[in-house]
Write a protein that binds this DNA or RNA. Structure first.
Lengths: 217, 217
DNA sequence: GGATGTGAAGTCGTTCACAGCT
DNA sequence: AGCTGTGAACGACTTCACATCC
């Protein structure tokens, strides 16, 4: 049961469930049914149960799920029982905004190195923004710093034209996970993972739906 | 043929094809086969043809697709033959970074209004960042400004705790499309669309894959 | 009684394989 | 000869429905 192929959509939803459970937990509730959790996340109740069933049995029949426990279980499933160490490359507007993005710092992810071709240009604005000042390094030191600081994930926030080069450097340094914010396709060898964050793709999606919604209603 | 239900995944891919075609076009090529386009985007060639087949016939048998034409056709399909007018609510780090994000300005999307509960607090940093200064308005003026400036899409970049309230206000103002960057689930009535941009969800995905990759090989 | 866990059915999306054009 | 367009085969995900257990 543990090793059947798990849909990527399931993993995405688990991440959502975790967020909802956290909210619920803060509100002092202790138990939740698959139906409530489902409606909160906008999915089917059976879906919730199926998603969890890939990984074991977490509920109590006739009762539901203990919020605290389930939250912990999902975090373990997702690999969030540790802090992931990340580097960010490209400290323009987006990069510096991510650097100071509180939600990263809070829990399972931490940015432990920042790189830019022109380190001196960005030092001012950044140290201003952050509580603690952040040292911006030149990309030539990437490989060395990845080793030193045990970096496992790279965030690419350069212009699109530089993204593939940066990805190559990350691969060369042995960074297996890449989150790409530059709106261009990146290719990496087998065994490395790239996930894209293209909000323009999502915007295009929205534009499509809005354009074609007239015929529905 | 035009009105069969179209997979959301198809729309996402079309957006990708468009990006690739644009790149190709800049390189001076004029024709491309479904196979090349597919490998560039990391999908199956039949997939490309099927995706396009939902909307018509755009290729020439034995030849391929004219890059310029196909790019234009896809833009029309996606509803990108116009400029979408957007408002952004919540001018913190992320909001101000989006405000100055060049890729928005370039083509099909434009931010025509910015709102924040504390307009005076953000005016400084923003006008510094942008070429032109941007007026930050109080959210109480949302409805009025949406009418005046014909806003069709709202970007929510507030803290999660405020996101639902902002969404309600957008709905009340008649903004049918919402792009939500605040990591919390938002609910809107029938006929309105919310798309989420949660990079932490994608990061969680990455974390999961990295955690479980060892068993593969 | 009530909610979970799960085989089976159903729906949706992808890939194949080849007919049909140029 | 080569590449598109597409019905048919396949595979994957979601939903249903109910047996199971607290």
């Amino acid at each position: 049961m543990k090793f059947s192929k798990i849909p990527e959509a399931t993993i995405r939803r688990l991440s959502n469930y975790a967020r909802c459970l956290e909210e619920m937990g803060k509100k002092g509730r202790t138990v939740i049914s698959s139906a409530s959790l489902a409606s909160m996340c906008g999915v089917n109740a059976a879906q919730v149960r199926k998603d969890l069933a890939y990984f074991g049995e977490f509920g109590i029949r006739g009762v539901g799920y203990y919020i605290k426990d389930l939250h912990e279980d999902i975090k373990n499933i997702l690999g969030l029982n540790k802090k992931w160490r990340m580097a960010i490359i490209g400290i323009g507007n987006l990069g510096s905004s991510l650097l100071s993005y509180k939600d990263f710092l809070k829990k399972n992810y931490t940015i432990v190195a920042a790189f830019d071709i022109h380190p001196e240009k960005v030092i001012g604005p950044i140290s201003e923004k952050m509580g603690r000042p952040v040292e911006i390094l030149h990309p030539s030191r990437l490989k060395e710093v990845v080793k030193e600081r045990k970096i496992e994930i790279g965030l690419i926030t350069t212009p699109p034209s530089e993204a593939q080069k940066v990805a190559d450097a990350l691969v060369d340094a042995g960074v297996r996970g890449i989150l790409n914010f530059a709106p261009t396709q990146i290719h990496v060898p087998e065994g490395f993972i790239v996930k894209n964050v293209f909000f323009t793709t999502i915007l295009d999606n929205l534009a499509y739906i809005l354009s074609n919604k007239s015929r529905k209603g």
